[in-house]
Design a protein around this nucleic acid. Structure first.
Length: 270
DNA sequence: CGCTGACCCTGACGGC
DNA sequence: TGCCGTCAGGGTCAGC
């Protein structure tokens, strides 16, 4: 479920409930996530004032004076605001109970997500080596061009590499490459600066528009449901292998690149 | 150093 | 109805 737009939507959804609130209690029902949830985490968080909820890449960062709680939603995770009376269901692994009575409930069937305590935060290995945010001014075609010289990986794998740029997951990598007219199999080091300028613009465009639509999911997400589907009708290639290209009608090709399903149009993408 | 593939885990879905 | 293989939007890590 979560790509960067979903994580940002989650951040915007939970931030009003917990910024400026104190943690009453952290309840861990299932500590076996991507990495084990630290046993001391409830004690570290108890009574702490959450000063801000930030996002870096696909990580959510709950800031307190004592340290930072880092949350990743993995492939199947979600974080929702529930009332204090709501009893936990299947895969509801962690609750962050707040003094105002709200509860942030973490659900993650596949348990690829994580809850970690960072102190100090920014030197942590998970954050240290990350590339720029895709929506920042720092990220542009020149950066992609510069970092790709000599690289032989397919361009799709290249833009999905978090050390190059963060937050470009499989859906939006496919979509951005389609919009830029670039064949995802093309070697990263053999693409011109001009084409990388277009690609960087398309990445920004597709992520921005998905975040804007995330406003729709926001209500779902606080209320329940959680299934996005909001952008499904705007997808040009993702999930459409074998079906006609919306632009030229040719049959979209599906293959695997770096263990991930890749869809593209051999006519529109070169 | 760059790159590939295995792996972490549950659930949904299609074919038989 | 059940069983089996395959696939899923994340990322790390060992090994070449």
């Amino acid at each position: 479920m979560p790509e960067l737009p979903e994580v940002e939507t989650t951040r915007r959804g939970v931030e009003p409930y917990c910024s400026g609130e104190r943690v009453r209690r952290l309840v861990v029902r299932e500590p076996r996530l991507r990495w084990p949830v630290p046993g001391q985490l409830p004690d570290l968080l108890r009574g702490q004032l959450i000063t801000a909820v930030e996002r870096r890449a696909k990580y959510l960062l709950f800031r307190t004076a004592a340290g930072t709680l880092l949350v990743h939603l993995g492939m199947s995770g979600s974080l929702r605001v529930v009332g204090p009376e709501q009893s936990p269901g299947k895969h509801d692994h962690i609750d962050i109970q707040l003094h105002n009575g709200a509860c942030l409930r973490y659900n993650d069937p596949r348990r690829f997500g994580c809850f970690l305590w960072l102190e100090p935060a920014e030197q942590h290995p998970l954050l240290r080596e990350l590339g720029p945010e895709p929506l920042s001014a720092e990220f542009d075609g020149e950066l992609l061009h510069g970092r790709s010289r000599g690289r032989r990986v397919p361009v799709k794998s290249f833009i999905m590499n978090g050390q190059v740029v963060v937050g470009v997951g499989n859906i939006y990598a496919n979509e951005a490459l389609f919009l830029a007219g670039i064949d995802p199999r093309r070697m990263a080091g053999r693409i011109s600066a001009a084409r990388y300028r277009v690609l960087a613009d398309r990445i920004k465009q597709v992520l921005t528009s998905a975040i804007e639509q995330g406003g729709t999911t926001l209500r779902d997400f606080v209320g329940g449901d959680g299934k996005p589907g909001y952008f499904a009708q705007q997808l040009y290639v993702y999930g459409r292998g074998g079906r006609p290209c919306k632009r030229c009608g040719a049959t979209l090709r599906e293959s695997r690149l770096g263990q991930r399903t890749t869809v593209f149009c051999v006519t529109c993408q070169r």
